[in-house]
């Protein structure tokens, strides 16, 4: 083949559509007059077309589960904290607050009730305050003589306090 290397590469760039419009026109007119260039272009095109069909049928020779298991293990090895759920621990402050907040609220309410209704009546009025053990954020006050019931809810719930949530997480 007598074609110089620069022309060979230009011909290939023409095939790969890497030339400007003006350069492509120039090569097209050159091809019309050069038999060797036409044959070389056909050879390059044949090779390209043969290659295009190569990867289509390639399949991974492992099962989905087996292939994934190694990836998963490696991810967990490198990022154990991200891959596993974090254990939730309660700090001592949050634990204490769970009891102190409702207890304080009960005391405050009782004081408020006593101030409002004054000392017990001579007839002996019946007052009752309850707090549920399974939900320390709730307590109830009953005044049977006056047919009044007051329910005190700690809201948001203790576990939803954003600051305690943050403190509870183990970094």
């Amino acid at each position: 083949m007598n074609m110089d290397h620069e022309k060979q590469l230009k011909l290939q760039a023409f095939l790969d559509e890497e030339l400007s419009e003006a350069e492509a026109k120039e090569v097209a007119s050159w091809l019309a007059k050069d038999q060797e260039a036409t044959l070389l272009l056909a050879e390059l095109r044949n090779t390209r077309q043969s290659m295009a069909r190569f990867e289509a049928g390639v399949r991974l020779p492992e099962s989905r589960e087996f292939y994934w298991s190694k990836i998963e293990r490696e991810i967990e090895r490198l990022e154990p904290a991200a891959a596993r759920p974090e254990p939730v621990r309660t700090s001592w402050l949050a634990a204490w607050r769970r009891f102190l907040v409702p207890a304080g609220a009960v005391a405050a309410l009782l004081i408020a009730v006593l101030v409002t209704i004054g000392p017990p009546t001579p007839q002996g009025g019946r007052l009752e305050a309850e707090s549920a053990f399974n939900d320390p954020g709730v307590f109830t006050y009953h005044d049977y003589d006056n047919h009044a019931t007051l329910v005190w809810l700690s809201y948001p719930a203790e576990k939803d306090f954003p600051d305690s949530d943050q403190n509870d997480k183990v970094q």
């Binding site: 083949m1 290397h5 060979q8 060797e36 044959l39 070389l40 050879e43 043969s50």
Partner: peptide, 12 residues
């Protein structure tokens, strides 16, 4: 390869 004549048939 640079100097070889073009292959005129499609080998595949």
């Amino acid at each position: 390869e640079r100097h070889m004549p073009p292959i005129t048939i499609n080998p595949t």
